[in-house]
Amino acid sequence: MLRTLIVDDERLARQAMRRLLAAHPSVEIVGEAETLDEAIAAIERTDPQLVFLDIELGSRGDGFDLLARLARPPLIVFVTAYAEYAVDAFAVSAVDYLLKPVEPERLAETLARVEQHMIRVLASSGQTVQGMIALRTPKQIVLAAPSEIAALRADGDFTHVYVADQPAVMILRTLGHFESLLPSPPFLRLGRSLIINRDRLRKIEAPSRAGARIVLQGITGPLELGRAATARLRELVSPDEI
Rank of each mutant, 00 (worst) to 15 (best):
A33W: 07
E34I: 01
E34D: 10
T35M: 01
L36G: 01
A39F: 02
I40W: 00
A41G: 05
A42T: 11
I43F: 02
E44I: 04
R45W: 01
T46Y: 08
D47Y: 11
D47F: 09
P48D: 04
P48Q: 12
L50Y: 09
I55T: 06
L57I: 09
L57T: 11
R60F: 02
G61F: 01
G61N: 08
D62S: 06
L67W: 05
A71W: 00
R72P: 00
R72F: 11
P74M: 08
I76A: 07
T80M: 10
T80H: 09
A81C: 08
A81P: 04
E84C: 00
D88W: 02
A89F: 08
F90I: 06
F90L: 06
F90V: 04
F90C: 03
V95A: 12
D96E: 06
Y97W: 09
K100Y: 03
V102P: 03
E103P: 00
E105P: 00
L111C: 11
L111S: 11
L111Y: 05
A112Q: 15
Q116S: 13
M118Q: 14
I119D: 08
I119H: 08
R120M: 12
S124I: 01
G126Q: 10
T128Y: 00
V129N: 13
Q130M: 08
M132F: 15
M132H: 12
M132A: 10
I133H: 00
R136E: 15
R136K: 15
T137V: 10
Q140S: 14
I141R: 05
A144F: 10
A145R: 15
A150W: 06
A151E: 08
A154D: 07
T159V: 11
T159D: 12
H160P: 00
V161E: 11
Y162S: 07
A164R: 10
M170S: 12
M170I: 13
R173P: 05
R173K: 15
L175K: 04
H177W: 14
